[in-house]
Design a protein around this nucleic acid. Sequence first.
DNA 1: TAGATTGTTAATCGATTAACAATC
DNA 2: TAGATTGTTAATCGATTAACAATC
Lengths: 223, 223
Amino acid sequence: MKRIDQVEGTFDRDKEKKRATPSDATVRRLPRYYRYLSRLLDDGILRISSSRLATRMGVTASQIRQDFSCFGDFGQQGYGYNVRYLYNKISRILGMKDGHRAVFIGWNDSAHALLSSPTFANGDITPVAVFAEVSPRDLPCYPLQDLREVLPRLDATIAVLNTAPASAQDVLSVLADCGIRGVLNYTTAHLTTPNTGMTIQNVYLDDPCLLLCYQMGSRACED
Amino acid sequence: MKRIDQVEGTFDRDKEKKRATPSDATVRRLPRYYRYLSRLLDDGILRISSSRLATRMGVTASQIRQDFSCFGDFGQQGYGYNVRYLYNKISRILGMKDGHRAVFIGWNDSAHALLSSPTFANGDITPVAVFAEVSPRDLPCYPLQDLREVLPRLDATIAVLNTAPASAQDVLSVLADCGIRGVLNYTTAHLTTPNTGMTIQNVYLDDPCLLLCYQMGSRACED
DNA sequence: TAGATTGTTAATCGATTAACAATC
DNA sequence: TAGATTGTTAATCGATTAACAATC
């Protein structure tokens, strides 16, 4: 049973086979697969074929099999995919089992909304502290000027940045010094990575809104 | 002067030339161009060539020219692009000049965060009302059960959906009845369009967070 | 075993890049 | 005019789809 061998080992890509490195397009679809599989689990569906999953998601079965095959042989011929197994695999691939701990630098609505999103609600990422003036109910809160002193003790890997845009770049270099390896940047500041070990994701809150407006316009043209 | 002719007329694509219909990839880049041009304006830069813009944005000049050329001839040989003109053009293409009015169905942190994002802060979209129990400071607020009665009077085109997932689909059909043409869905519910005239954008708040974690993991592998 | 469905290879399609004539 | 830079066409590259042998 191929699947059983692969359960152990945290990240067993390329153990034997040479696998295609996942394209950007494939990687961007991973969260979507993760969500769908989670929904299947909620619905009590334990087994699914690429073609049924494809129909549900509105993509092709080929694409699904191609995407998954970059990471491992997760299915069984004649059977399909075990939903829970696949879900756990993708969870690992996405790094949800890496025990990430997040600090919030600055506190506002975006921070709050993220904290109630599935990723935090599931416990995939653990929120450990907030650096801000106003404190949310249930997280330890420190003044921003204590960042350099306190942060190294928190064993955090991720920072969620919600400061004023002007101070974002300065804060970023402190974060890098204190061992933060990933930054979710909600500020409008355009940040440059202070060192190569750090990953930044810029979040543009109104992108979906802009695309919606575009689509509303172009739909109208079609009629 | 080619550019002058095109200033009038709200949406003058395909006036004479046959233009390539913009690919999905191109469309998804439009908000990014919009942001960059806005930043150039803030910096007082009035003129830019595709190659300088490309360097700043980390893309190729070819791509920029291809993308823009789906929508019109916005540049001038030997000169480049007039930043303000181009910004206005893209603003129009994105539908920011369509006078969209938005209602918020349900009120939470995501709603609040969106309301303070550039699109609303700029006045590109006008918020007109909230349907929720708790009212934000400066917007008219109605109870959700008055939706069907009040909404038609508000002349709104966009609804920002932040209800409980269970009631989302029901609310959606009311929205469709009341003339809403675009919905920004922040709920975790998977919605199906009630009629063809409606456009839905699903927002997945934790996607950037998941991608960040993925990148943090795969970076580690590279070292 | 027979039926189903995978993982993968080859074929198609689309998007990006390079190059250049047109022209400001 | 000469230099610069566009819009566009052709060439390259990458991603998606189709097809099928392998196999559960």
